[in-house]
Measured scan of single mutants.
Amino acid sequence: MQRVNMIMAESPGLITICLLGYLLSAECTVFLDHENANKILNRPKRYNSGKLEEFVQGNLERECMEEKCSFEEAREVFENTERTTEFWKQYVDGDQCESNPCLNGGSCKDDINSYECWCPFGFEGKNCELDVTCNIKNGRCEQFCKNSADNKVVCSCTEGYRLAENQKSCEPAVPFPCGRVSVSQTSKLTRAETVFPDVDYVNSTEAETILDNITQSTQSFNDFTRVVGGEDAKPGQFPWQVVLNGKVDAFCGGSIVNEKWIVTAAHCVETGVKITVVAGEHNIEETEHTEQKRNVIRIIPHHNYNAAINKYNHDIALLELDEPLVLNSYVTPICIADKEYTNIFLKFGSGYVSGWGRVFHKGRSALVLQYLRVPLVDRATCLRSTKFTIYNNMFCAGFHEGGRDSCQGDSGGPHVTEVEGTSFLTGIISWGEECAMKGKYGIYTKVSRYVNWIKEKTKLT
């Protein structure tokens, strides 16, 4: 034993070699072989497995989906700052455009905790909710729209109204504003409101030439003092309507412009014939205590009207009353817009006519005020429907199939267009061939041609 100890002390290297040989010859039971080890760690190889990531292109799944990435790591994937920024906006807080917040056709661009709407022409605001041009839906104005110097929408209202708090709607500024039905039992019968379409306001006024200088022999019209197929109006439903009495009662109609003036057809009036105007009328054979009678003290036909040349060209006249009318729910003026808007309103496509005229061709006159909704007829169809001249200051309205029309005794009465609950004068009943005849239409004086003249002559002093 002493000898062994001496050998170990003198030859430590020998001992180490012996131990190493023993270990190498022993069977290893701690580690699995290569094949079995792979069965336990069965993990798919990654895209760049075996390579240094710093030297390969980034992978979106590896960089940002398996674990949260930084902007720089995302930049490695896209290799483009702009594309990385677009991805980053949604990656950080989701897609803010998912709810489609942009209105009126706006395009949404996502941002971090926010979004941006790219608005089409005519709109602005956070969600493109603000109209900035009158060309689109009248700028959301209830009545009139004008573009300011910086191309912003400025709404306005006709006389007797003021802008509401929203700067879009119009509200009454006087007790009985024009064009409004205020009798409670008839307010439910107000005709369907007309909503502004998209309009090209630059070209809204037709490029028409008034044929002022045409000389033409007097034409022989049949029954051209021209509501057939209409309905009984309720008291106060058309408070701007008046009836004219002269040699015979209810020979023509008219509309209240203001307390002192009536507008009617020029062919209705004769110099030297006494005319009485009755406002607030409903049943011409009954006294309903809503009527107001006034005498006409002055007749002003349009300066281009000449019955000797043509009885229905420039067929418009103004009547001055001896005493002002007292405005109330049964006696209310009709609204008159400017030339541009009167023309736009007419193009809405349908209007209402009213009167006490004959209820059928050569038949009896109506006792109760009649009204009828009539569609506008395109000019080409209008011209083809008659052998008589249709001037540019006239328009056609009615039904091709016949059966409904204005008729004798309705002449001078109103053709009105309702705009968001307020009625505007767009025409004056003038003439036609018979009444409600198939293929024939009622012919009306186009008020847009005469609004400046009306307003100039009827100013209240």
Rank of each mutant, 00 (worst) to 15 (best):
C435K: 04
A436V: 07
E27W: 04
N36G: 14
R404W: 15
L321W: 00
F196G: 15
K362D: 12
E61T: 02
V202A: 14
T225Y: 11
N100W: 10
S148C: 06
S430D: 02
L163M: 06
C145G: 03
E208A: 13
V153F: 08
D249E: 14
S385H: 15
T461K: 09
T271K: 09
S25C: 14
T225F: 07
P239T: 02
C170T: 02
K51V: 11
V419S: 05
V374K: 03
G13D: 07
K109E: 10
K440V: 05
S70H: 04
T218N: 15
F176I: 10
Y22W: 15
N38V: 12
Q57T: 01
Y371G: 13
Y47N: 05
H34I: 14
T264L: 03
V416G: 05
Q408S: 12
C145A: 04
E66M: 05
E193V: 15
K455M: 07
D410C: 09
V92L: 11
L244D: 01
A308I: 07
G272M: 07
C141L: 00
E159A: 10
V92W: 09
C141Y: 00
R364H: 10
T84E: 02
C97H: 03
F121H: 15
L325Q: 00
L20Q: 02
I15S: 05
S25E: 09
T271H: 14
S107F: 06
C396M: 02
I15F: 08
D110F: 08
R75L: 13
N452C: 05
K362V: 05
F345M: 07
R373N: 11
D212S: 09
V377A: 06
V153L: 08
H400D: 12
F251D: 04
G50W: 03
D33P: 06
E456A: 09
G229Y: 15
P12D: 11
K362N: 13
G439P: 06
S114G: 12
G272E: 08
S329E: 15
N343I: 04
V30G: 11
V277A: 06
V451F: 04
Y312G: 04
P197D: 08
Q370G: 08
V4I: 14
V202R: 14
N310Q: 07
F238N: 03
I262C: 04
G402E: 15
F224W: 11
T84L: 06
S350T: 15
L318G: 00
R3W: 13
C396H: 02
D315H: 01
M65N: 07
I344G: 09
A397D: 02
T381E: 09
E281S: 11
N36S: 12
M8Q: 14
D322I: 02
E171G: 05
D322L: 02
T264E: 01
G253K: 08
V30L: 13
D405Q: 15
S148E: 10
N151H: 11
E86A: 14
